[in-house]
């Protein structure tokens, strides 16, 4: 479980997050939603230990991430950032293999190579394994970075807007893969994902954390948190949850 208590993060004079207290349960997919500037990425980076809280604590599976050693954090959680840039000349296989670094610290074993191959296979990257990351399309590149986060083999996967600039086909592909990872009882991974697309969040998440202006707006099971009334108040615009066949969509409430 992720336990966040009285979290405050300041950026100069401005508070990016103010006294946020909530919990994220283990297992399944947790969506962090909220309008632009709500503090979603800041919260995710604070959970990842990249931002030190000015006040409050974050415990991930009982570990205080702000005080944990970087190596210990890397065994606990992986993070896919928005600006997941790659160094030139890096092949997809080499990028994915970097995910094993916390385990081998520069001395890769046969087991690391086997797990890297398995991740490449799981994300259908075999045909692209030898290609340079810079030459891939946005969707392919995101899949490669996801494979890298996956092979890190941590109980928590944190993803900061991994669907940004992806078309519906790749969006569905990525979310289906995340669902498959979250439901895999053998690996027992929990996925925490920052999302802008509310329909995707409503359809795929099990738990939801809603932020507004750096403060917690609501947290709980997605079915209870993502209601027409909550979303309308969260975004200050009329929104409505609707059923479209087997899917849930969020539409303009007018």
């Amino acid at each position: 479980m992720i336990e966040i208590e009285g979290l405050t993060v300041r950026r100069g004079e401005t508070a990016a997050l103010t006294e946020v207290t909530c919990q994220v349960p283990e297992g399944g997919i947790t969506a962090i939603i909220g309008p632009n500037g709500a503090g979603k990425s800041t919260l995710l980076h604070a959970i990842a230990g990249l931002i030190r809280p000015d006040e409050g604590h974050i415990r991930v599976s009982g570990t205080d991430v702000a005080r944990a050693r970087e190596r210990d954090r890397a065994m606990l959680l992986s993070l896919l950032t928005q600006s997941a840039g790659a160094v030139p000349r890096l092949s997809v296989r080499e990028l994915v293999a970097f995910g094993r670094w916390p385990h081998h610290r520069g001395r890769p074993t046969a087991e690391d190579a086997r797990l890297t191959d398995a991740a490449i296979e799981r994300f259908d990257l075999e045909p692209l394994a030898g290609r340079e990351v810079e030459a891939l399309s946005g969707g392919q590149r995101q899949r490669a970075f996801l494979a890298m986060a996956y092979v890190q083999d941590t109980p928590w996967m944190l993803l900061d807007e991994p669907l940004a600039a992806l078309d519906p086909k790749y969006t569905r592909d990525i979310m289906d893969r995340l669902r498959s990872i979250a439901d895999d009882r053998t690996t027992r991974r929990s996925v925490v994902i920052v999302l802008h697309d509310l329909s995707i969040a409503a359809r795929h998440s099990d738990w939801c954390v809603a932020l507004k202006s750096g403060r917690l707006h609501g947290a709980g099971p997605a079915s209870e948190t993502m209601t027409s009334g909550t979303l309308t108040a969260l975004y200050d615009t009329p929104l409505r949850i609707a059923n479209a066949g087997k899917s849930i969509v969020v539409v303009d409430g007018d």
Binding site: L50, R71, R73, T81, W101, P102
Partner: peptide, 8 residues
């Protein structure tokens, strides 16, 4: 950031 999340 990426390096730190990999435990470096």
């Amino acid at each position: 950031d990426k390096a730190r999340t990999l435990g470096l």
